[in-house]
Amino acid sequence: MIWTIWKKEVESYFSSPLAYVLIGLFSLITGIMFFNLLVTYTDGVQAIPQDMAQNISFVEEVVLKLFANINFLFLIFIPLLTMKLFSEEKRLETIDLFWLSPTKEWQVVLAKGLSALSLVVSMLFMTIIFPLIIWGVGVKDLSLLGTSYLSVLLNACCYISLGLFCSSITRNQIISGLLSILGILFLWMITWGGHLNSNYMISEIFNYIGITSHFERILRGLLGTQDIIYYLSFIFIFGFLTVKSLGRRNW
């Protein structure tokens, strides 16, 4: 059942220009970012004495910054992918097709979530060319590449689950998209709020609830149990809320 719905959703993405436009735009923007980071790095290295230049980490200056920027791009790209997943189906009443069949709400949520994730993976797949270029020009230190990809993928999963929930509570896809963007911004702002607070306990709580601290830890290869628990519980909670929101038609 999940496979059937996933396949239909992915085909639906690729039957409209949306998927191609998003993947193309994403590749273009990340390409420009990569180029800029690379130029800034080489300019920086050339501007200082050779012994000091060794202290400037390529991974730190290019790889990590690139993935942090990719995370920033998701603020717009993922709500664009998720905004119509339920809202449009509710508006057109095609969602009833699922409820007329023995399909369960969680199966629909999981299938739609996986279809959006598939598109994110397609976008990220286009960025594989950057490490290949770096490798090709002789930079062999790509130590944090794996965890960098993992960090943006985990963030994408959270944004998708949040986006699915926003899409399930309205029939208007514009409202759904705006709610998702605001939700993601809020997740970032919680961590900023933590930095501004002088109380250690409150600051730590804010840090844990906000997504940024977990993202940065994984990005730097410091994946811990608390981060795994955070991501899993985030995805589960919003997945659960989406299932409940869809089940509300029964009340």
């Binding site: 059937t4 057109l92 095609t94 023995p102």
Partner: peptide, 29 residues
């Protein structure tokens, strides 16, 4: 659910699907 067929006032159709694919999809559900 497999024993009740409903054609609502607004037929629930995926406009971006072909007729055959749509019917296959519903049958699979």
């Amino acid at each position: 659910k497999n024993k009740i067929g409903l054609l609502p006032e607004n037929a629930p159709l995926f406009l971006d699907m072909s007729v055959e694919k749509y019917l296959h999809f519903v049958a699979k559900l």
